[in-house]
């Protein structure tokens, strides 16, 4: 029975393989719909559109970006999960997705089962800032202060489960301190609260936080990457500052519905990598604090698995869970 059933499937697969090779050569023959499950004007949206401007020519087809925000990226992502796996619907995703794998166990899709990786786009560092009234001038002093305060300090984030929240939880876990999490509705509101001293510290995108730190409204203590940020080379990394092994960034990438033919993935990966590594693109992104990431399809897959495992640990330690 089992064998009988799988016979036509094998034949179908063989037939598909033949047609797929043909497909990849002609792909794309119609516009590509790119779903961004985040708000219009957010980094994911902006970089997706930026990529689109440069992808249109080599692909010969429009790259139509559609923002479908909501429910912490789940609404838009689910739309892509349920779309045909023909390479004409793509998902722009970020580490929100890898965090959600452990943070939101009940959701209509599983990232690595319902999607296949295409390519990463870029990453941006986070900047750890504190309100200027706080008597901490370095990461080390901040950790000491937090240890003395024994849970009496708090940090702002743009919402539960966002990369900013997780970056804070990772800081707590690695530095061995207890700091209260105060979620806000948007990163704008969170930024306001740390500028005004309502909350004491925050990890925020370096792009938006650096001008505020330069104006003296907050004090920058460290950047979150493995290396110092190109836009603020004088600020040490958090790991340099004494929190060993701390490394987190906001990165975005592209995935496609599971079952999308491999040759299409490879073709998209090659084109995206070409754009991301161009000198002029690198320069524009550098101004905004973003660094291009280039990985092969299988390299990106490994990166995704590693990231999911990393956040699963943090979520477990933090005891955070969202039952969406």
């Amino acid at each position: 029975m089992h064998l009988l059933r799988s016979m036509p499937r094998a034949a179908l697969a063989a037939a598909m393989l033949v047609s797929v090779c043909a497909v990849a050569q002609t792909y794309p023959v119609k516009p590509i719909r790119v779903i961004v499950p985040f708000g219009v004007g957010g980094p994911a949206d902006i970089y997706a559109r930026f990529l689109g401007q440069h992808m249109q020519k080599p692909l010969g087809q429009p790259w139509v970006v559609e923002a479908r925000p909501g429910a912490g990226s789940i609404i838009g992502t689910d739309i892509v999960a349920k779309s045909p796996a023909d390479g004409y619907t793509l998902l722009v995703m970020s580490n929100t997705h890898t965090v959600n794998e452990s943070l939101v166990p009940k959701k209509p899709f599983t990232l690595m089962k319902d999607f296949v990786p295409v390519a990463p786009i870029n990453y941006s560092d986070l900047l750890l800032v504190v309100h200027p009234s706080l008597p901490a001038r370095s990461v080390k002093e901040l950790v000491a202060l937090a240890k003395r305060a024994k849970g009496g300090m708090n940090y702002a984030s743009s919402g539960t489960g966002t990369p900013y929240h997780m970056a804070g939880e990772l800081f707590k876990a690695l530095a061995g301190v207890d700091i209260l999490h105060v979620p806000h509705k948007s990163s704008g509101e969170a930024r306001t609260s740390v500028m005004s001293g309502q909350t004491e510290m925050m990890l925020d995108a370096i792009t938006t936080m650096l001008p505020i730190a330069k104006a003296g409204k907050v004090r920058a203590l460290g950047t979150s990457g493995q290396k110092r940020s190109a836009v603020a080379p004088d600020i040490p990394t958090i790991a340099e500052g004494g929190v060993k092994g701390y490394e987190t960034t906001i990165w975005i990438g592209v995935m496609a519905p599971a079952g999308t033919p491999r040759p299409i993935l490879e073709k998209l990966n090659a084109e995206i990598t070409k754009v991301a590594t161009r000198a002029d693109v690198r320069e524009v992104w550098a101004k905004q604090g973003a660094t291009p990431m280039s990985m092969s399809v299988s390299g990106f897959e490994k990166h995704l698995h590693a990231d999911i495992a990393k956040w699963a640990k943090v979520v477990k330690t933090a005891g955070a869970r969202a039952d969406r």
Binding site: G41, F50, L210, I212, V284, K287, Q288
Partner: peptide, 21 residues
């Protein structure tokens, strides 16, 4: 949300909004 989108519109051009704008 409206001003957030407007900030995005100038950030795309490499202008970083902030207290010094």
């Amino acid at each position: 949300p409206v001003t957030a989108v407007m900030i995005a519109a100038i950030m795309v051009h490499g202008i970083l909004p902030g207290p010094m704008l």
